[in-house]
Protein backbone atom coordinates (compact mmCIF):
# COMPACT_ATOMS: atom_id res chain seq x y z
CA UNK A 1 0.00 0.00 0.00
CA UNK A 2 2.75 2.44 1.02
CA UNK A 3 6.25 2.05 -0.28
CA UNK A 4 9.08 4.38 0.68
CA UNK A 5 12.24 3.84 -1.29
CA UNK A 6 15.61 5.46 -0.57
CA UNK A 7 14.14 8.77 0.51
CA UNK A 8 16.48 11.62 1.50
CA UNK A 9 15.64 15.20 2.37
CA UNK A 10 17.65 18.28 3.31
CA UNK A 11 16.69 21.59 4.90
CA UNK A 12 19.52 23.70 3.55
CA UNK A 13 22.67 21.89 4.65
CA UNK A 14 20.88 19.81 7.33
CA UNK A 15 19.97 16.31 6.32
CA UNK A 16 16.62 15.46 7.95
CA UNK A 17 15.97 12.16 6.15
CA UNK A 18 18.80 9.85 5.22
CA UNK A 19 18.10 7.10 2.70
CA UNK A 20 14.90 5.83 4.33
CA UNK A 21 13.18 2.75 2.92
CA UNK A 22 10.20 0.78 4.20
CA UNK A 23 6.91 -0.79 3.14
CA UNK A 24 3.45 -0.86 4.65
CA UNK A 25 1.28 -3.66 3.31
CA UNK A 26 -2.50 -3.40 3.00
CA UNK A 27 -4.12 -3.85 6.40
CA UNK A 28 -0.86 -3.43 8.26
CA UNK A 29 -0.38 -1.14 11.23
CA UNK A 30 3.11 0.30 11.47
CA UNK A 31 4.24 2.39 14.42
CA UNK A 32 7.07 4.87 13.87
CA UNK A 33 8.93 5.96 16.98
CA UNK A 34 12.18 7.64 17.91
CA UNK A 35 13.56 10.63 19.80
CA UNK A 36 12.39 14.13 18.89
CA UNK A 37 14.12 15.52 15.84
CA UNK A 38 14.71 12.05 14.44
CA UNK A 39 12.68 12.85 11.31
CA UNK A 40 9.66 10.66 11.95
CA UNK A 41 7.11 13.46 11.40
CA UNK A 42 8.91 14.51 8.26
CA UNK A 43 8.89 10.94 6.99
CA UNK A 44 5.15 10.52 7.49
CA UNK A 45 4.47 13.87 5.79
CA UNK A 46 6.38 12.64 2.74
CA UNK A 47 3.78 9.92 2.31
CA UNK A 48 1.07 12.39 1.26
CA UNK A 49 3.45 14.91 -0.25
CA UNK A 50 3.15 17.58 2.44
CA UNK A 51 6.94 17.47 2.52
CA UNK A 52 8.81 17.25 -0.75
CA UNK A 53 11.78 14.91 -0.95
CA UNK A 54 14.97 15.57 -2.83
CA UNK A 55 15.91 11.98 -3.48
CA UNK A 56 14.07 8.66 -3.52
CA UNK A 57 10.57 7.58 -4.31
CA UNK A 58 7.29 7.30 -2.40
CA UNK A 59 4.47 5.19 -3.84
CA UNK A 60 1.00 5.04 -2.29
CA UNK A 61 -1.61 2.66 -3.67
CA UNK A 62 0.17 2.61 -7.03
CA UNK A 63 0.52 6.40 -7.25
CA UNK A 64 4.06 7.80 -7.35
CA UNK A 65 3.81 10.67 -4.84
CA UNK A 66 7.24 11.99 -5.69
CA UNK A 67 6.61 12.27 -9.42
CA UNK A 68 6.22 15.93 -10.41
CA UNK A 69 3.13 15.27 -12.52
CA UNK A 70 1.15 13.52 -9.79
CA UNK A 71 -2.11 15.23 -8.85
CA UNK A 72 -1.31 15.57 -5.16
CA UNK A 73 -4.78 16.80 -4.24
CA UNK A 74 -6.38 13.65 -5.63
CA UNK A 75 -3.89 11.50 -3.78
CA UNK A 76 -4.32 13.36 -0.51
CA UNK A 77 -8.08 12.93 -0.72
CA UNK A 78 -7.47 9.17 -0.46
CA UNK A 79 -4.90 9.32 2.34
CA UNK A 80 -6.31 10.33 5.71
CA UNK A 81 -4.11 12.33 8.05
CA UNK A 82 -4.43 13.14 11.74
CA UNK A 83 -2.20 15.86 13.24
CA UNK A 84 -0.58 16.40 16.59
CA UNK A 85 -2.49 19.64 17.16
CA UNK A 86 -5.76 18.32 15.65
CA UNK A 87 -5.91 21.18 13.11
CA UNK A 88 -9.65 21.29 13.01
CA UNK A 89 -10.74 24.49 11.29
CA UNK A 90 -11.84 26.64 14.23
CA UNK A 91 -14.11 28.93 12.21
CA UNK A 92 -16.18 25.99 10.95
CA UNK A 93 -18.66 23.91 12.96
CA UNK A 94 -17.95 20.23 13.56
CA UNK A 95 -20.35 19.30 10.76
CA UNK A 96 -18.70 21.74 8.34
CA UNK A 97 -15.26 20.42 9.27
CA UNK A 98 -16.48 16.94 8.35
CA UNK A 99 -18.07 17.93 5.05
CA UNK A 100 -15.68 20.54 3.61
CA UNK A 101 -13.30 18.05 1.98
CA UNK A 102 -16.07 15.72 0.85
CA UNK A 103 -17.91 18.53 -0.93
CA UNK A 104 -14.96 20.49 -2.33
CA UNK A 105 -12.63 17.62 -3.18
CA UNK A 106 -14.77 14.52 -3.68
CA UNK A 107 -17.64 16.51 -5.17
CA UNK A 108 -20.27 14.89 -2.97
CA UNK A 109 -23.61 16.55 -2.46
CA UNK A 110 -24.18 18.30 0.83
CA UNK A 111 -26.72 15.69 2.01
CA UNK A 112 -24.45 12.84 1.09
CA UNK A 113 -21.51 14.50 2.84
CA UNK A 114 -23.51 15.19 5.98
CA UNK A 115 -24.76 11.60 6.10
CA UNK A 116 -21.27 10.20 5.71
CA UNK A 117 -19.76 12.71 8.16
CA UNK A 118 -22.35 12.02 10.83
CA UNK A 119 -21.84 8.30 10.48
CA UNK A 120 -18.14 8.78 11.19
CA UNK A 121 -18.88 11.22 14.00
CA UNK A 122 -21.15 8.63 15.56
CA UNK A 123 -18.42 6.09 15.21
CA UNK A 124 -16.02 8.19 17.33
CA UNK A 125 -18.87 8.67 19.81
CA UNK A 126 -19.51 12.37 19.25
CA UNK A 127 -22.75 12.46 17.24
CA UNK A 128 -24.29 14.82 19.78
CA UNK A 129 -21.68 17.50 19.08
CA UNK A 130 -22.31 18.04 15.36
CA UNK A 131 -23.31 21.69 15.69
CA UNK A 132 -20.59 22.74 18.10
CA UNK A 133 -17.42 24.58 17.16
CA UNK A 134 -13.96 23.10 17.80
CA UNK A 135 -13.17 25.56 20.59
CA UNK A 136 -16.19 24.23 22.49
CA UNK A 137 -14.76 20.69 22.62
CA UNK A 138 -12.06 19.15 24.81
CA UNK A 139 -8.75 18.21 23.25
CA UNK A 140 -9.64 14.51 23.15
CA UNK A 141 -12.96 15.29 21.52
CA UNK A 142 -11.29 17.53 18.96
CA UNK A 143 -8.84 14.79 18.03
CA UNK A 144 -11.70 12.30 17.63
CA UNK A 145 -13.49 14.75 15.34
CA UNK A 146 -10.25 15.09 13.37
CA UNK A 147 -10.16 11.31 12.95
CA UNK A 148 -13.80 11.34 11.85
CA UNK A 149 -12.96 14.10 9.36
CA UNK A 150 -10.23 11.96 7.83
CA UNK A 151 -12.46 8.86 7.76
CA UNK A 152 -15.28 10.77 6.04
CA UNK A 153 -13.10 10.92 2.95
CA UNK A 154 -13.10 7.08 2.74
CA UNK A 155 -9.30 6.88 2.84
CA UNK A 156 -7.38 3.84 1.64
CA UNK A 157 -4.89 4.36 4.47
CA UNK A 158 -4.42 6.61 7.47
CA UNK A 159 -1.43 8.61 8.70
CA UNK A 160 -1.20 9.63 12.36
CA UNK A 161 1.37 12.26 13.36
CA UNK A 162 1.74 12.05 17.15
CA UNK A 163 -2.03 12.09 17.63
CA UNK A 164 -1.93 11.95 21.43
CA UNK A 165 1.13 13.98 22.36
CA UNK A 166 -0.73 17.28 22.70
CA UNK A 167 -3.40 15.73 24.92
CA UNK A 168 -3.85 15.67 28.68
CA UNK A 169 -3.24 12.13 30.03
CA UNK A 170 -6.89 11.43 30.80
CA UNK A 171 -7.87 12.11 27.20
CA UNK A 172 -5.26 9.93 25.56
CA UNK A 173 -7.16 6.69 26.01
CA UNK A 174 -10.35 7.93 24.32
CA UNK A 175 -8.31 8.69 21.19
CA UNK A 176 -6.31 5.47 21.38
CA UNK A 177 -9.55 3.45 21.71
CA UNK A 178 -10.74 4.87 18.42
CA UNK A 179 -7.41 4.08 16.78
CA UNK A 180 -7.37 0.51 18.14
CA UNK A 181 -10.87 -0.10 16.80
CA UNK A 182 -9.79 1.24 13.43
CA UNK A 183 -6.74 -1.04 13.38
CA UNK A 184 -8.79 -4.07 14.30
CA UNK A 185 -11.12 -3.38 11.37
CA UNK A 186 -8.15 -3.75 9.05
CA UNK A 187 -7.33 -0.11 8.19
CA UNK A 188 -3.84 0.40 6.84
CA UNK A 189 -2.19 2.73 9.32
CA UNK A 190 1.15 4.48 9.74
CA UNK A 191 1.40 6.04 13.19
CA UNK A 192 4.10 8.27 14.62
CA UNK A 193 3.57 7.80 18.35
CA UNK A 194 5.28 7.15 21.65
CA UNK A 195 2.34 5.12 22.97
CA UNK A 196 4.09 1.79 23.32
CA UNK A 197 0.97 0.20 24.83
CA UNK A 198 -0.81 0.96 21.58
CA UNK A 199 2.09 -0.43 19.58
CA UNK A 200 2.13 -3.62 21.63
CA UNK A 201 -1.57 -4.09 21.18
CA UNK A 202 -2.17 -3.51 17.49
CA UNK A 203 1.06 -2.85 15.62
CA UNK A 204 2.31 -5.37 13.10
CA UNK A 205 5.68 -3.68 12.81
CA UNK A 206 7.67 -1.02 14.62
CA UNK A 207 10.06 1.37 12.92
CA UNK A 208 12.64 3.13 15.06
CA UNK A 209 14.26 6.28 13.68
CA UNK A 210 17.24 8.28 14.83
CA UNK A 211 18.95 11.27 13.18
CA UNK A 212 16.94 10.92 9.99
CA UNK A 213 17.70 7.23 9.54
CA UNK A 214 15.55 4.15 9.95
CA UNK A 215 17.55 2.24 12.54
CA UNK A 216 15.15 -0.63 13.19
CA UNK A 217 12.29 -1.93 11.09
CA UNK A 218 11.01 -5.22 12.46
CA UNK A 219 8.02 -7.14 13.74
CA UNK A 220 6.55 -5.91 17.01
CA UNK A 221 7.57 -9.03 18.88
CA UNK A 222 11.24 -8.78 18.02
CA UNK A 223 11.30 -5.00 18.64
CA UNK A 224 9.94 -5.31 22.16
CA UNK A 225 11.72 -8.59 22.74
CA UNK A 226 15.24 -7.66 21.78
CA UNK A 227 15.89 -4.57 19.68
CA UNK A 228 19.19 -4.96 17.91
CA UNK A 229 20.50 -1.42 18.08
CA UNK A 230 21.82 0.11 21.24
CA UNK A 231 20.09 3.39 20.44
CA UNK A 232 16.69 1.71 20.35
CA UNK A 233 17.39 -0.13 23.59
CA UNK A 234 18.22 3.16 25.32
CA UNK A 235 15.11 4.77 23.88
CA UNK A 236 12.87 1.93 25.01
CA UNK A 237 14.42 1.89 28.46
CA UNK A 238 13.73 5.60 28.81
CA UNK A 239 10.10 5.63 27.73
CA UNK A 240 9.17 2.39 29.44
CA UNK A 241 10.72 3.52 32.72
CA UNK A 242 7.58 5.19 33.97
Amino acid sequence: MISICGVSKWYGPTRVLDDCSTEVAKGDVVVVCGPSGSGKSTLIKCVNGLEAVQRGEVIVDGVVVTAPKTDLNRLRARVGMVFQHFELFPHLSVADNLTLGQIKVLGRSRDEAIARGLKMLDRVGLAAHRDKFPAQLSGGQQQRVAIARALSMDPVCMLFDEPTSALDPEMISEVLDVMVALAEEGMTMMCVTHEMGFARRVADRVIFMDQGRIVEDCAKESFFGAPRSERAQQFLAKILQH
Partner: peptide, 11 residues
Protein backbone atom coordinates in the same frame (compact mmCIF):
# COMPACT_ATOMS: atom_id res chain seq x y z
CA UNK B 1 -0.68 22.88 10.54
CA UNK B 2 -3.87 24.56 9.28
CA UNK B 3 -2.48 24.78 5.77
CA UNK B 4 -1.16 21.21 6.01
CA UNK B 5 -4.49 19.90 7.29
CA UNK B 6 -6.34 21.58 4.44
CA UNK B 7 -3.90 20.21 1.87
CA UNK B 8 -4.00 16.76 3.50
CA UNK B 9 -7.75 16.70 2.85
CA UNK B 10 -7.00 17.20 -0.82
CA UNK B 11 -8.06 20.85 -1.02
Amino acid sequence: GQREAALALGL
